[in-house]
Amino acid sequence: MDKQLDLLQGTLDMLILKAVSLGPLHGYGILLRIQQISKDRLEIQQGSLYPALYRLEHQGWITSEWGESENKRKAKYYRLAAGKRKLQTEAEKWNRMADVIAGILQSTPEEV
């Protein structure tokens, strides 16, 4: 798919949690991972990533510590804290929502 999709409202948190759940990452790494997993089909405002990270950390879902990056530079790494369960419930909620939406969109006149 050529065209990138704008991120739906409220899904960035979930994506960050998912990205971090696969292993500790720094902010730029999270961006790359989401783009990599989504095969570059999602457009993420880079500036909005950090407020989201700070909010998630403030709420205790993720924690951060300073470490060394691949090219030997100091970087702040985020890892999942209490967010495992949060991710689970968010994902369930999202899947249910997606099912419902998909169901509605696939409905045919006979079904109604």
Binding site: H26, Y50, N71, K76
Partner: peptide, 16 residues
């Protein structure tokens, strides 16, 4: 300071 460093790291890594 940390916020500054973190954002700078991001931009520099991106530029790299």
């Amino acid at each position: 300071r940390e916020m500054d460093a973190e954002l700078r790291f991001h931009i520099e890594a991106f530029a790299e």
